[in-house]
């Protein structure tokens, strides 16, 4: 809708109606975000905005303001073709120390961290077999049901992909068919490469700076991803 259409639409609604719809949009996005599912604009309009679609730009503007002012979150479009959004932390993380309240640890995030580490250390893209073999060494066999993760292959190639933590793409012209992994957009925004490198350093008892290429990438604010990330360590 155009600006004048939005304006005319707003005139037909009471401020309370607009507030109510904004609240519903905020809640819908928060619920999706808790499950790490990106919000598709089409779904948001269809399930929540409904009859208010002419004033959608105004409502989303207000929702974004609420996320920033009240929750310290930022609504970011991660896919401009399909209009997909995720919430990222908008608070300055560079000074943050660990919180005194323990968060429930999510074992799946540990699994993800390992996969992201492998991809990052190998230059940003790896064939899937490398991931499966690495996990087997850690006693997580994607061919077997795992006590904690259930169907490991499904968690990695479906859940993490849907949540935009990973990209899982077919490599063209391969016979038999082969796939490769990359970081997904959410990882680009939420996961700090510097933190990954530090983790690798501890794992291999090695100075993170000895991985020159990765170190440069992790600490260059110029990389596309880290320039918009909020929870990564910019030093």
């Amino acid at each position: 809708p155009s600006t004048s259409q939005v304006q005319r639409g707003l005139e037909k609604l009471t401020p309370a109606q607009v507030d109510q719809k904004t609240a519903e949009v905020v809640q819908y996005i928060l619920v999706k975000d808790q499950k790490k599912i990106p919000v598709r604009r089409a779904d948001l309009v269809k399930h929540v905005v409904k009859d208010y679609r002419t004033v959608y730009p105004e409502i989303i503007k207000r929702a974004m303001r609420t996320f920033e002012q009240v929750f310290g979150l930022k609504l970011v479009e991660i896919d401009s073709k399909n209009h997909m959004y995720v919430l990222v932390n908008n608070l300055d993380a560079s000074t943050a120390r660990p919180s005194p309240v323990e968060r429930p640890s999510n074992p799946k995030m540990g699994l993800l961290f390992v996969i992201l580490s492998v991809i990052f250390m190998k230059g940003g893209v790896v064939r899937e077999n490398l991931i499966w073999n690495t996990l087997k060494k850690l006693r997580v066999d994607p061919g077997q049901r795992h006590e904690e993760f259930g169907d490991v292959r499904k968690v990695i190639t479906d859940e993490f992909v849907r949540q935009r933590y990973l990209e899982y793409v077919r490599i063209p012209h391969t016979e038999p068919v082969e796939y490769e992994f990359r970081w997904g957009q959410r990882s680009d925004m939420e996961v700090s490469r510097a933190q990954i490198l530090e983790f690798m350093g501890q794992l291999h008892e090695q100075d993170p700076r000895s991985w020159t290429q990765q170190y440069r990438e992790a600490h260059s604010a110029a990389t596309a991803s880290s320039s918009q990330a909020s929870s990564s360590n910019h030093r």
Binding site: G72, L73, N89, L91, A96, P100
Partner: peptide
């Protein structure tokens, strides 16, 4: 008007769902 301290408190509470009073005090300070 809220500051970042309020927002961080709220974010943590969203992540954990519930805290006891003692934890809430420590979190407030933090």
């Amino acid at each position: 008007l809220l500051g970042d301290s309020h927002r961080r408190f709220l974010q943590t509470l969203m992540a954990v769902g519930i805290t006891d009073e003692q934890e809430a005090r420590a979190l407030y300070q933090h």
